[in-house]
Design a protein around this nucleic acid. Sequence first.
DNA 1: CTGAAAGCGCTTACAG
DNA 2: CTGAAAGCGCTTACAG
Lengths: 342, 342
Amino acid sequence: MSVSLKTIAQELGVSVSTVSRVVNGKDRVDGNTRKRVEAALKAHDYQPNQMARTLRGKSSRTFGVLVSDISNLLFSRLIKGVEQAAMDRGYDVIVVNTDGDPGRVKRGVSLLLAKQVSGIIMASGGFDQQVEKKVREQGIPLVFIDTTPVRAGNFSSVSIDNVLAAEELTKLLIENGHSKIAVLAGPQNESTSIGRLRGFQKALEANGIQIPGHWIVKGEFGVEAGMAAAQTLLSERMRPTAVIAVSNSLAYGAMHALRRHGYQVPADISLASFDVIDDSYLIQPVFTTVNQPVLQYGTEAVRLCLRQRSQTAKAPYEQMVLPHRLIKGETVGPVAEESGCR
Amino acid sequence: MSVSLKTIAQELGVSVSTVSRVVNGKDRVDGNTRKRVEAALKAHDYQPNQMARTLRGKSSRTFGVLVSDISNLLFSRLIKGVEQAAMDRGYDVIVVNTDGDPGRVKRGVSLLLAKQVSGIIMASGGFDQQVEKKVREQGIPLVFIDTTPVRAGNFSSVSIDNVLAAEELTKLLIENGHSKIAVLAGPQNESTSIGRLRGFQKALEANGIQIPGHWIVKGEFGVEAGMAAAQTLLSERMRPTAVIAVSNSLAYGAMHALRRHGYQVPADISLASFDVIDDSYLIQPVFTTVNQPVLQYGTEAVRLCLRQRSQTAKAPYEQMVLPHRLIKGETVGPVAEESGCR
DNA sequence: CTGAAAGCGCTTACAG
DNA sequence: CTGAAAGCGCTTACAG
């Protein structure tokens, strides 16, 4: 298919080594020879065979990113952040979508290891012991962004301060007079949802607020779960006046359930959320939400991967915490008089 | 890092060839030997080195997909379709985001060629002569999905019948009494926007409708372009009563401009669109739009790549056309009395 | 400065 | 059925 060093070497009557040397530009080569080789290289549009190179032990200069859901704006933005950071340093990136399924995570990681990536950036659930072992064995840097599975061993990570963010969000509700607050807390095996729930609880405690245990609804992250949870909460005798959803899809689901039951947000009930991003700017009301600095995540994740790689001694795992942003939006308001509606 | 055939061969006192044979399972190996090797393979969790394999000329069993904008739901869904189809056949997929920029397309294609992918699936603009040449030289199958650049030579493609879809959408407007229809036609170097504009024009002709030339607004695909175009149209003395946007972002942009100017959709003006997908189901009103069968695109694209690869003679390029879906939505209504607003 | 040689991990005719 | 050998395309000590 493509021309090899050999072709060019033969054509010029020099050795493969010499051609290789000018390609790599490190070793010294006679000025004149270099000129001739360079010309031939260009004439053939020579591209080194990456397979061969990597086989010889060179870096593939590629990062792999795993995301749980490529069609969730949170993750697609995140990917863009990683891409940009990687590109700035001359690296490529391979994206793998996992649906948060451990089987697909495992397969995705195998793919990336097989492609000998320089680092793995993980923004997906479903990372289990088995996968961890594989990554460790290969000695490939891995950094978690956004969320880290609780059971994972020592790895670098980039995230926001989820506890603090949730505290702020909860305080916002409390300041608006709410004390009957429920939380759609998501799965309790991920740093994000765990931290967010903890922050929620801290804020309640700090304000001496007690809520019924079942107002803390643990479960999945998705839209369905959000709908179901909201539905259940609404069917109780005593209803919350505000709900916090720890993911964007939980928030969407909750919003639907609320609307279907005839509740106005925030007139009848307030809804605070995490990670809602609206590219169309057409969703109304605008969600009150905490946003993560996803573009910056990319930069830091790449940096951490690279550093880990260069370090010879014990891997310098680092938990990097970046500032979040609280978007006030329009879905949080003062407590309704006495929710009269249906 | 990882165990190699050699390690296992030495451990068992057999030759590398034998181990390789049982790994590949094609050649015949003595039953007993096979058992022992298999056990060792499993014990070490042996993974063949893909670099070495591919270097020896085997398929990488990987597809590459290029999309113009990974955070546009149209494309992220499309990626999911490809992933699923690929996985079903035991292939992996590498995703590359291009922003429709020729430089990034070129770089992305180089990456994929370097990784020796089994096929390239292209759902992005920015595919130029130079890139085409490279792909051709490598003899790697490439199929366009969604859109094809007009200047591209002979390649397979998967798409909807854009002309027909646009005709239907336009007819829907005409049936609603509209004859003053403008179109945000997008860039005129892509099969989608070209076909959609043509369909629009055919429908007008068929109904003896004439519109001012500047109501056909050519340009970019993005939100900004949509806003700008709508803005201009609204500032004229004679205003259209309906607008067709040939992309989702053009439609979003147009919707914003309309709202900002105080127009109600569809009460004051109708808006028909392409490729609007709303994951949150929270955008209101629900857009009237034509949708592509993106999941099916994946299946077909993979099939076409594979077929092209297996074919020995002239590449059997194939233009595959799949049925679209017209979603009636709520953004198209009867012509307003005489748009009294502002 | 330059070439011959070894070797990365694998596959696959070629001989036994 | 099995092993020794060649070779995919490259890089890199090792000698000159």
